[in-house]
Design a protein around this nucleic acid. Structure first.
Lengths: 241, 241
DNA sequence: ACCTGAACACCGTTCAAGT
DNA sequence: ACCTGAACACCGTTCAAGT
């Protein structure tokens, strides 16, 4: 499956080049059109989906035209990532208790990360410092405050939740970007290699080899999200005592 | 600060090329010498420290010679990463209770990740499927079993701990690889931007802006590690009841 | 059996030249 | 004021040629 073939908006047989198709006739580029094009190519989901050259193709412009509107690719990435944070925020219902708000944030973040894996993977250790990030910080702080944490305790637990969720969905996104062979090798280790270890040297692995093979990504995800909630509950209870 | 200048083993003035210096006269490359050279360059800590071309320089050989001993760079990376896991395991003392074994694993992993940031950053979403990884799995499974979890519960909580620690130290390593400007921008957001938000739109941020600026990486690290331990304790208590 | 080095197909980015 | 396109300094990797 080639990249162009997997792009439904670029039929292979069409004679006129992609630039003629995508270019709004006579229109100029703008930060907005560039961000939208970035989201479209990032949503294609392959590891090399989000490159400056591919962005040029999508825009029907020379790749370097992007540098007239963004300082560099990182600047654009942060802007694009902040848009995806907007999608996450829009997916969170009103009226939930603090635990369910964190669960909804986690679920929404995962869905968006799997939709734009190249962006989520690149952002796993980053911060956008843009509008929607402030809204996410406000949301998490509201949750930990409602849980009963204040001041420095609220601050450090916000960071715990924020950094952990970023890492969690970033890992899932990165996994999606791996080649099929790499994913197969990874899965095979659980279903095959871990069942064949030396039982004397590795008694613990031997004892749960079957169960290790049956762990799902969703199960791990759930455990990691609940661990954050549990930790906040425990700390709030300690402080209340 | 140029890359060559920051490499203490390659004095700039020396007339004979680096290859003459590092090459053991008449010796051939081997997987072992390549892995050791990889660890040396990864320990230099810059983002581009671990490239095939730089590895060639370090070995005093043509970069492509590496492909005679490893299928590709990823294959070498997994081998190198497994060596660093060995360093982590060697750092864990005997005779600790399960909580302290997890804390020691986390501390050791962080230290090694900060020593070889390019490796830790690349491994954040990976699995080595090699000897030392089995030992780490055995260690974590031993801890969660001692905590009182069995079967599927032990398996999923092992994955929770393993994936979380990998992500945590990977994030710290990636942060170390950022350019000085990127790190400065990141830190400035906490010490400056978060103190200037609109108090009406962002009451929670306003309330703890001071404390947010004072959160340290070590504080977040501690909270994230303790959250894992707390979650295991809680689950074990639920199952015992 | 292993190493070399040219070459390929990529990256992000700069800059002089166009309009 | 904005876009183009050649060019630069990188990547990982392949392959024919050397020894």
């Amino acid at each position: 499956m080639s990249n162009t073939a997997s792009n439904p908006s670029t039929p292979r047989a069409a004679a006129p080049p992609a630039r003629a198709r995508n270019r709004r006739s006579g229109s100029q580029l703008s930060p907005e059109t560039i961000i939208e094009a970035s989201l479209r190519i990032a949503a294609r989901g392959s590891a090399d989906a989000f490159t400056v050259r591919r962005l040029g193709e999508e825009l029907g412009a020379d790749p370097t035209a992007v540098y007239r509107h963004f300082r560099d690719k990182d600047d654009l990435l942060l802007e694009v990532a902040d848009r995806t944070l907007g999608e996450v925020l829009d997916s969170i219902p009103e009226g939930l208790g603090w635990q369910d708000r964190i669960r909804a944030l986690a679920d929404g973040s995962l869905a968006v990360a799997l939709k734009y894996p190249a962006v989520a993977s690149a952002m796993a250790s980053r911060t956008t410092r843009r509008a929607n990030e402030f809204r996410v910080v406000e949301l998490i702080l509201g949750a930990v405050t409602e849980a009963g944490l204040t001041g420095a305790e609220a601050a450090v637990h916000y960071r715990m939740v924020g950094d952990s969720l970023l890492a969690l969905v970033g890992q899932r996104a990165a996994y999606l970007l791996f080649s099929a062979e790499a994913r197969a090798a990874d899965e095979a280790s659980w279903t095959r290699e871990y069942r064949l270890v030396d039982p004397v040297a590795f008694p613990q692995i031997t004892a749960v080899a079957e169960e290790l093979a049956q762990v799902t990504q969703d199960g791990v995800y759930r455990a990691r999200v609940e661990a954050l909630i549990t930790a906040i509950e425990r700390r709030a209870a300690e402080l209340a005592a």
